[in-house]
């Protein structure tokens, strides 16, 4: 039995502990998402010599939107009311099962990497269908672009996961995180670093950040993700915004935990959970600041140059897998 395996076998605590840990993760992601976006906005503003809105602006916006009147476009079907719910729901479930704070989450043996990927895909599909529901020009255009980018980022994502799963001999996320904690040498191996690069590109694409998409644009021809949300208002908009922020925080948290797992709780004590919370906040905040600084200094790519970037990510991921074969 390897170290990782022994660790997993030891870490199957009581149900209520796991429920508590998962609930804490959901809350952390739900609150952390808007805060991270606020932090990035602040960093960008400062870099551009502006003062910028306060970091908590995102949370205040959500609070405001929830109390506004719900308005829907006239030709919409049930999809328009379901899509925000599904987007939010998939983000919540994904945050509950991903080992962000602890390796023992609510679903036994859950938290499989592929599950997280497909849950996020579910959210994307819901958002894209929502974009098409009102029958407006921009919504459809945004859906078309977002699905295209999603389709070509998928191979890089899954092959990068394959590179890590082959190393850890499992696709279960708690297994991978526990494995890296037991074998820190993995983290500096070429395949892990190449897979990191590939995953980083995919995360940028999936969350719609520069250079793939610009979340602060409302210029018609450059919008991708924003275009799908144009028809939402009030509580629907609050769910979509919250869902998107959660996806962002979740992907960032996943990325830092895959490549810098220290701080994740494997001992299931409350103190360890709190330490994990602080560690996660610090790690993701650092990554968010780095991303914000890169965003300030880079221009958005032309839409038809994005496939090249993502193909680059795919090549990195394939190199990661082959590096794992060559270097033993």
């Amino acid at each position: 039995m390897t170290g990782a395996n022994a660790m997993l076998a030891a870490a199957t605590p009581l149900l209520w502990v796991r429920i508590f840990a998962s609930a804490l993760q959901v809350v952390a992601v739900a609150v952390g998402g808007p805060l991270l976006l606020g932090l990035m906005g602040k960093v960008r503003a400062r870099a551009e010599s502006r003062i910028g809105p306060p970091i908590t602006q995102g949370l205040a916006d959500l609070r405001k939107l929830v109390r506004k009147e719900a308005i829907r476009a006239e030709h919409t079907s049930a999809v328009a009311s379901l899509a925000p719910l599904v987007l939010l729901g998939s983000a919540v479930v994904a945050s509950a099962v991903t080992p962000l704070l602890t390796t023992s989450t609510i679903i036994t043996g859950g938290g499989d990497l592929f599950v997280v990927v497909y849950l996020l895909l579910m959210g994307s599909v819901a958002l894209a269908l929502g974009g098409l529901d009102a029958g407006t020009a921009f919504g459809g255009m945004g859906s078309s672009r977002a699905m295209t980018i999603g389709a070509i980022s998928e191979p890089a994502l899954l092959v990068a996961i394959l590179a890590m799963a082959v190393q850890a001999k499992t696709s279960s996320l708690p297994g991978i995180v526990a494995g890296t904690l037991a074998h820190p040498a993995w983290l500096t191996s070429p395949q892990w670093i190449l897979a990191l690069a590939a995953l980083a590109i995919v995360v940028i694409a999936e969350t719609g950040r520069i250079p793939v998409d610009n979340p602060s644009t409302h210029l018609e021809l450059t919008m991708i993700r924003e275009a799908m949300m144009l028809e939402y208002a009030g509580p629907d908009l609050s769910m979509v915004t919250a869902g998107e922020a959660m996806r962002f925080a979740l992907l960032l948290g996943l990325l830092v935990n895959l490549f810098f797992p220290w701080g994740v709780d494997t001992s299931r004590s409350v103190a360890a959970l709190l330490i994990a919370l602080v560690a996660l906040a610090a790690k993701t905040a650092l990554l968010a600041i780095v991303i914000a600084l890169i965003e300030v200094s880079t221009a958005k790519l032309r839409l038809f140059r994005i496939p090249e970037l993502l193909a680059g990510g795919f090549v990195l991921a394939v190199m990661a897998v082959t590096a794992g074969l060559v270097i033993k």
Binding site: N5, L8, L85, V86, L88, G89, S90, V92, V93, A96, V97, I106, I107, T108, G109, G110, D112, V115, L119, K169, T170, S171, S172, G175
Partner: peptide, 17 residues
Amino acid sequence: KSAIEPGQLAAGLLAVV
């Protein structure tokens, strides 16, 4: 060392929604 519980995922999703 891999498992999924689609039933639990679906139930969780339904509950959240």
